[in-house]
Simulated scan of single mutants.
Amino acid sequence: MTTRSTVRRRGTAATAVACALLVVAGCSGTTKDSEEDNTKPEKKTEATANPDAPIKEGLKVAFLPKQINNPYETIVDKAGMAAAKEYGGDAKEVGPSDASASSQVSYINTLIQQKQDAILIAANDPNAVCGPLQQAMDQGIAVVAYDSDTAKDCRQVFINQASSEEIGRSLVRNLGKQLNYKGKFAILSATQNATNQNTWIDFMKKELEDPKYKGMELVKVAYGDDDDQKSFQQTQGLLQAYPDLKGIISPTTVGIAAAARYVSDSSYKGKVVINGLGTPNQMRKYVKDGTVEQFSLWDPNDLGYLSSYTAAALASGQITGAEGETYKAGKLGEFTVGKDGEVILGPPTIFDKSNIDKYDF
């Protein structure tokens, strides 16, 4: 039989147990204010930059290029890894052998598991890499895009070789002068989803809206997927499909070298203008044999160097990626973070017979 006093004793014991379990709360009961606090989402503390903070020792930095065997990106990444040695970091290059949209995802996941301090990526696709990169940032890993950007929410800083608008418009301006603003031309790009290529092509098309280009016609944008043989075949296909083609712009180092190689051994040499973005060492023989009059590019060594120091600045808390922040990038000096986290290396250089032997990259 249960007496009233027994019930009271049981109730007191239950209360004591509850208090023991809730000792952190002081067993003080739930007020309206604490009830509201429990339902409010936790606010994330905004990171603040400390420009005077030293670069952390032993930073683990990983470069993830579009593809591991791309000659241009090899130059960029080697320069970035050399820069890491300057600031006491440990850098490496990893990546796929193809430039497909999703080929970089598994590498990002592995780098997260390895607890890298910073991931630097030249994105094959602006969105395919977003999920894992956001996971990386959530875990405190600095994410820098270089050469080819990701979607803006998927990295903190983008290192742009030069103003995207200037690159795109200047390529059309250069070709226009060579063609005397007359004739059909094509664009030989990398992959269909490459952020940098598509941005430059958009600005090329805007430049073509100027009335001075009314005598020029863009007949096709072809894609060589940053593959030498495919780019070579695409060049052949363009010239067969448009026998009256007067010029080809290839804003990719793989593409312009492949196009120049095809034209140099064909009847089109001296008749079709090849222009675009290339490295001096790839293009030297085509400039000297008259296949290519000029092309342009920035120094990929500087791009890798700046990207590496930017990742170190992020991982060390010197910057957060907010507009207006400044930081030092070793021998290159001071840089400022612009709108949407963009940092611009500088204007491209035009290479021709007069200066190409001054460069070795």
Rank of each mutant, 00 (worst) to 15 (best):
Q282A: 15
G304K: 00
N281H: 10
S264H: 13
A259R: 01
A312S: 06
I319Q: 05
A259Q: 03
V287K: 05
Q282W: 07
A257M: 14
S307H: 13
T310S: 06
K285S: 15
N301F: 00
G290E: 12
A258G: 04
L306V: 09
K288G: 01
S264C: 08
D299T: 02
A311I: 12
N275C: 09
L277F: 11
Q294R: 15
Q294T: 15
D299P: 00
V287Y: 05
G290F: 08
F295Q: 07
G278K: 02
R284Q: 10
T291N: 03
Y268K: 06
A312C: 04
S264Q: 13
K271Q: 14
G304Y: 02
V272Y: 07
G304H: 02
R261E: 15
T320Y: 05
V263N: 03
I274R: 01
E293Y: 02
P300H: 04
N301A: 12
V292S: 06
N275L: 14
V263R: 04
G290L: 14
L314A: 12
V287Q: 01
A311K: 07
G321S: 12
G321D: 08
Q318D: 14
D302F: 05
P280W: 00
D265S: 15
K288C: 03
I274G: 07
Y268T: 05
G255I: 06
M283I: 02
D289W: 10
E293M: 08
L314T: 00
S264L: 11
M283S: 08
A258I: 15
L297R: 05
N275Q: 14
V272A: 13
A259K: 00
A315C: 07
I256E: 06
K269W: 15
G317V: 04
D289Y: 14
G278H: 03
M283D: 00
Q294Y: 12
G317C: 08
L277W: 04
A312Q: 04
A258S: 12
L277I: 15
Q282E: 13
T320M: 08
G290P: 01
N281V: 12
R284Y: 11
T252D: 11
Y286Q: 09
T320S: 11
G304L: 01
G290Y: 10
Y262R: 08
R284N: 13
S267E: 15
G276E: 12
M283C: 06
S264F: 11
A311P: 00
Y262N: 02
A257Q: 15
R261Y: 13
T291C: 08
S316A: 06
Q318T: 06
Q318R: 12
V273C: 13
D302C: 08
L314E: 08
S296L: 06
Y268I: 02
A322E: 11
I274V: 14
T279Y: 04
S307C: 11
N281Y: 04
A259I: 05
T253S: 15
T253P: 04
A260Q: 03
V287P: 00
F295S: 06
G270F: 12
L277P: 00
N281L: 15
Q318V: 10
L277N: 05
L297F: 10
P280K: 03
N281S: 09
Y309F: 15
K285C: 01
T320P: 01
Y286V: 09
L277Q: 12
L277D: 10
D289I: 10
Y262C: 01
A322H: 09
L303K: 01
A257R: 12
